[in-house]
Each structure stands twice: as structure tokens, then as C-alpha cells.
Design a protein around this nucleic acid. Structure first.
Lengths: 169, 169
DNA sequence: AGTTTTTACTTGACTGAGCAAGTAAAAATT
DNA sequence: AATTTTTACTTGCTCAGTCAAGTAAAAACT
């Protein structure tokens, strides 16, 4: 009997769980980024942009859609795309159909970068997240993550971006 | 039946699990910070400093120890302490025993802030993390987090805070 | 058709964090 | 005792990310 006795603060098992999670929240992102940064000076976020574009038709997406896939604000994405555009991995063009939109296209060099980076990225996710867990825990982690996601969307005034098309990472 | 077939990229359930976790890693920290920032212009990180100090003898800790509790680099901690010192919640003094060290002490105002902020903090952790999970999942989340932590410490050249003492050649 | 509103970004100002260089005090070495 | 090394921070520089303001094109309205 150590849980949720006092509603005003975390105690017992709840506190321990939260402390463990908080440490992961702090350390996991930089730990995952490190190999990609060392090897290619590429962040996981920038990798995610290349990854999303590679699966898109014509390897191109509008910024808003890409921002949604990358869990990103438009402004953050805009700057990140500027960075990797400067390195020749994507290219921006004005959408001929809608002049307000920017189409970001993965270049051949970008695709090559993605293919090179993918095994490195996969390896660190496996080493740091997947392999240390049992198969059951991997399943639980997915379910737990989805529940937390739902709670976040519920709490903040959340609006589904476009309930029409696909959803994926 | 879709796991770990290709060692060079994530597929199937592994990809789905990772995608779900990546979204949480991106969204949970700002979602947890939001209520504290709105209410008191206090980040979770700054809250953590106050929290750690409150439990320390004399409500004081040396920067290095505090950095360890807060999962923080010394430089990040130094700036954060400067911020909350400017708001009167902590105070820095030189350690009389070791002149290199800085003792950071929680002030009465800081303790009051902590007590005010704690229920807000506890509520958001409960709403976003604990309540959406089953009791079994809460337990699993703790265990999963600890396993990931261990993997991170193993991979990076990790040095325990105090590599015991005498080991010279 | 002309004006207003909305959409889709982009960018300037600002803040927080990392890295590396600096400072000062204690410990170790000569 | 004097010098070197280590420890414990602090700070300047730079950069990524946020928020708000700006820009330009399409949609809606009159």
C-alpha cells in the first residue's frame, strides 16, 4: 500500500515509476541521436524527414503534411528543411496546384543518405529500446505509448490534422 | 509475425512500437511542462531542482550532486539555478568546507513555491501518464524504463558518479 | 470584381542547452 | 614550499526551437 494515497503528490510506486520514466525522457533522445550525429551529423528529427519523404509519392510532401508526420511545428520543420536543403538532401519547390504550399522533395543524394543512415538508426533503437525488453514488454511499450498519446491529445485542445488520409510514422 | 526480420531497418511490430514511443518522446515533455509553465512560469526541470533540495539536509546541495539528481549537465544546472535564484527561490553560497563547491539552498519562498506547484505537477503526471494505464502497465512502465536506462548507461561510456576511490598504478 | 478571411508557410527576436574555454580552489607531485 | 593536476563550477559562443509577426496565395463573402 504505497500508491496514490495522497492526491496532491506522487508517492510510493507511482513516484518510482515516474522518476524512472522522467530519466528516460531526459536521456533517451540524446542517446538515440548520438550515433547518427557522430556518423552523419544528422539528427533523428532530420532523419525522420528523409524517412517520411522516401515513402511519399514522387518522394515529395507538402510542409504541413510533413510536419504532421514528423510530430513537428511548422516553424521547426521549416528550419530543419532549410538545413538539409543546404546539404542537398531535399529540395523545395512551389506547389503548382496551390501556390501557398511548398513541396519538399527528397533528392537522390537524400535517398542515398537515408539508406546509409537507416541501419545506424535501426541499430540504436534496437540496442537502447527493443533488445533490453522482453517480447511482452515490447508489446506493452507500444500499447502504453499509445495510451499516453491519447491522453495528451485529449488534454490539450487537440484537433486531428486531417482525418482523411493515411497515418504512419 | 512481423518482427526483426531485417536487421538493417525496423519493420512490423518493432516499427510500430518505435513510432509510438517516438511520438511520446516528442510530445510528453512539453505536455507535462505546460501546466507548470502556465501557472507559475516554472519548467519541470526547475521544479525538479526545488524538489531535490527540499529533501536534502539543510535544504542544501552542492551543484554536482544536484546535477546528478536532476539528470543534468553542470552547465545546464548552473544556468537554471541562476534563473530561479533571480526569482528568490534558491540561494547560492560558497561551501565553507570546500571553496570550489557551490551550495545551493532552497529559500522559504522556494519551499512555498514547491508546495504550491507540487499538486499541479502531480496532477499532470497522473492525468497524462499514470491514469491512462492499467495498474499492471504502470508496473511495466517502471520496469521498462529501468531497462532502457541500463542500456543507455551501458552503451555510452558511462562512469558511475564516484569510481570508488584508490585505483592507481 | 473587390474586399476580407483563411491557409501555408517563412522569418525575426528571444530563450534554453551544449560544448569548450576560463577561473578558482583543493590535492597531488616534485 | 612550489608547481602541476584535478575538481567544481561559470560563462561566451553558437545553434535549435518557440512564439509572434510578416508575406503571399487561395477561398469566401459582399
Amino acid at each position: 500500500m504505497s500508491d496514490s494515497s495522497d492526491p496532491n503528490r506522487l508517492t510510493g510506486d507511482d513516484l518510482a515509476t515516474w522518476a524512472a520514466l522522467a530519466t528516460v525522457l531526459e536521456w533517451l533522445p540524446p542517446a538515440l541521436d548520438a550515433p547518427l550525429i557522430r556518423s552523419f551529423d544528422l539528427t533523428h528529427f532530420e532523419y525522420g524527414i528523409l524517412f517520411a519523404l522516401a515513402d511519399a509519392p514522387d518522394r515529395a510532401l507538402r510542409m504541413t503534411v510533413l510536419a504532421d508526420y514528423a510530430n513537428s511545428s511548422l516553424s521547426r520543420l521549416s528550419r530543419a528543411v532549410s538545413r538539409i536543403e543546404g546539404r542537398g538532401w531535399v529540395q523545395r519547390t512551389r506547389d503548382p496546384v496551390d501556390g501557398r504550399s511548398t513541396l519538399t522533395t527528397l533528392t537522390d543524394a537524400g535517398l542515398k543518405m537515408l539508406d546509409t543512415a537507416t541501419p545506424v538508426q535501426a541499430l540504436s533503437v534496437k540496442e537502447l529500446v527493443l533488445d533490453p525488453l522482453t517480447s511482452a514488454q515490447r508489446g506493452q511499450l507500444g500499447e502504453i505509448s499509445r495510451r499516453i498519446q491519447r491522453a495528451i491529445r485529449k488534454q490539450e485542445g487537440w484537433q486531428p490534422p486531417q482525418p482523411s488520409a493515411s497515418d504512419n510514422d
